[in-house]
Design a protein around this nucleic acid. Structure first.
Lengths: 283, 283
DNA sequence: ATAATAGTGTCTATCAGACATTATCTG
DNA sequence: CAGATAATGTCTGATAGACACTATTAT
């Protein structure tokens, strides 16, 4: 129906759209709280693996448990904005890769009340110091080890180890069957709420996408060496890549800066430095 | 922290978790309504393209506009359940492919009140008659034409044409740049709310996944011929596939039933019939 | 027979996997 | 020099794109 003719169109109660909206009563539908939870990932200091930012909860429920940072969505912002705001509060960083992963709605996932959570994934190029936030007692980067059979989150300084074993389970959706990871806790400490499941979904999605969507570039500095970039791919995928194939794959996405520098502390040849080619990463 | 020791752990107000939860007050945070919107796609009668199920709105806002079916999520169900329930109400079908696509949160996307929507994609193997639902004045299958430059939704019987032109726009997220489709309305009639954007996101995601996740099998009957399956791939991708390459690609996922039958009405050789190989579609 | 559709054969370009070799740096 | 790391060369096998050809059916 034409947009302009809709202005005078009356519904079965004889109301125009304007009148309807003025009289609209949100009604008694129960509404959930909606939060964002953010996976903030970065490479560790020596480019050997991933780190994830966790906060320690200072109140019930899951008091003293480590959890993904997150917060409520406010009425006049998008979920993306809410996630970006939380990300900046936690790390001070703006303009970072931030992407919606999945929305978690299982009843009872928060013992307080009905809460659904929109999960986001953020990728940061370096690990800055983190300051504990309002509701958090503490905040820290954890080493993340995600394999086909287990997830380990550890922080040696704080002597914390959180470990889940993973079992693959076939799962059928119409004619299609997927493999899902089913976690079971293997350590004294655990992640709060359903945050393991969020972590699993986010890692699965990132692994599926990284070879095509170039998110690895978000895990290194804007000027990077190929050994650095390769370890970003390898850390996400959890498997080694052949150097030559890797370099062939990225060769048309990068430009040399002209300078050379050291990728590692120990000996060996220096690496050429590159930047991402302008407009070269679009799929 | 150990799970059992947490039972006695008191927060800064001196409350255990049990006491805290009992006294918990959801507070004055404003909460959004949460709905699911579902893209229900199927192949048209002669396997030449996709159809999408739309309902005609019987009340404000967007009265008389065509819209995606959907409904509110209730407190003790997952969003998936809510979507499956709506799908069954609308089509009578159960056990259909149904997958979460994206969650839409833009303020003002519903003029009534704060509403966020979790979008789902459903793929049905055949088009049954649809019965208009409670809040809907009408329901019908529309031909869907989604190209790089436009979206057309049409129903000849009802003489409805909804058309948007698409412009590709680069969009930068951290170090990564994507291409997004920006729709602009080109017809008298329009889709309700932000449902064009939902349609665009769902089609983008389906196109990215179909070659790896085998969703095309959900668009054909459990017994299918290769011409039928190929047209399902082609309808989704919006481009022709080479017959031989296509057949090589799917050859290890299917088993012959032994029978042969006609894929089309008009002349030509009969096609062999296949079924999806058991456990053969897992990625 | 002819047109239309189903199904197969084969060549090429590309690319990931795999491994070897050369180049450069530190000590 | 040795040991370590960076960078490149080359072979193989799998696969998508491209096109040609054979097989079967309706009219």
């Amino acid at each position: 129906m034409k947009t302009n003719s809709r202005a005078n169109r009356k519904n079965k109660d004889g109301l125009t759209e304007k009148q309807f909206l003025k009289a609209y009563n949100p009604g008694d539908y129960k509404r959930p709280s909606v939060t964002t939870d953010i996976l903030i990932l970065g490479m560790n200091e020596d480019h050997s693996g991933l780190k994830i930012l966790l906060i320690k909860r200072g109140n019930h429920p899951f008091i003293d448990c480590w959890a993904l940072p997150g917060g409520f969505i406010e009425e006049n912002e998008t979920a993306y904005r809410a996630a970006a705001r939380e990300l900046e509060e936690e790390t001070g960083l703006k303009g970072i890769y931030l992407d919606q992963v999945y929305t978690f709605t299982k009843p009872g996932r928060d013992p307080r009340t009905w809460v659904i959570s929109i999960a986001y994934l953020a990728l940061v190029p370096k690990l800055d110091e983190v300051k504990g936030c309002d509701d958090a007692e503490d905040a820290a980067w954890f080493d993340l080890n995600f394999t086909d059979t287990s997830i380990e989150l550890s922080n040696d300084e704080k002597d914390v180890l959180i470990k889940y074993s993973l079992k693959k389970e076939a799962f059928s959706n119409g004619a299609v069957t997927y493999e899902n990871y089913i976690p079971s806790l293997k350590s004294e400490e655990a992640l709060a709420f359903d945050h393991v499941e969020i972590l699993i979904e986010a890692m699965k999605k990132l692994r599926e996408q990284i070879l095509y969507n170039d998110q690895a570039f978000c895990l290194v500095d804007s000027k990077f060496t190929l050994p650095e970039l390769q370890s970003a791919y390898e850390a996400v995928l959890g498997r080694p890549l052949y150097k030559k194939s890797f370099r062939d794959m990225v060769s048309d996405k990068i430009t040399e800066t002209g300078t050379e520098r050291r990728s590692v502390i120990k000996g060996g040849r220096t690496s050429k430095e590159y930047v991402l080619k302008k407009g070269g990463s679009g799929s």
